[in-house]
Amino acid sequence: MDDRITLRLARYRPEEEAEPTFEEYEVPCRKDWVVLDGLNYIKDQLDGTLSFRWSCRMGICGSCGMTVNGEPKLTCETFLTDYAPGPVRIEPLQNFPVIRDLIVEMTDFMQKLTTIKPWIVRDEERPLAEGEYRQTPDEMSEYMQYSMCINCMLCYAACPVYSLDPKFIGPAAIALAQRYNLDSRDEGSGERLDILSQHEGIWACTFVGECTEVCPKDVDPAGAIQRYKLDAALTSLKSFLLPWGAR
């Protein structure tokens, strides 16, 4: 119980300073404590001005992503004891503008998510009276993995291509596009291809693979992007060779 660990927190108070600074806090290092518990301890006991996002504490909501010792992590499932004796460096997610302390601006990500039409697109909606769109378990397993994303943005924080070119649409959005493309009920892959085959779409990805490594839900965005590239390239080759062919 007496074990303690030092957290080096990036603080940024835009009304006072032009660049982030670091401040150190000592918190108890209990066996069952994650980084988020440490942050809440600071907020409750040591410094109420600290700002950070969190909600569910169980790896579902995707809001507590931060950079822990240089690695993008969900702070609710990153244990303090793994970093003993410390100190642990905690910074906001990389590649996003910082609003305050550990909070980043995520409008860019939210806008990108909607551009790929993350819903089931039908050429013609079936009338309600005809019942639901049905799907077999095999058909569902085709896209299941890509539907596990919790929008925690760790993949964007890890992606070197996104850091260099913020116009890149990014790992989670492309994996989400693939999730709908592979859905047997969806007919929107052509519309999504028009958006994604732009340069900032999929071709900017050089398969560094960092997104897959940091993903807390094993979505494998890097794999999704490569699959999508292959599909998109073959589709565009087909439409190049057979320009009159319907797609």
């Binding site: 835009p14 032009a18 990389q94 910082v98 601006e105 806008q111 551009t115 913020p166 900032e200």
Partner: peptide
């Protein structure tokens, strides 16, 4: 393609490393 978010009165200053 979406643009980067623009500055607003509520977010007077951001830090971008």
């Amino acid at each position: 393609m979406s643009e980067r978010p623009t500055y607003t009165p509520f977010h007077p200053r951001w830090y971008r490393p």
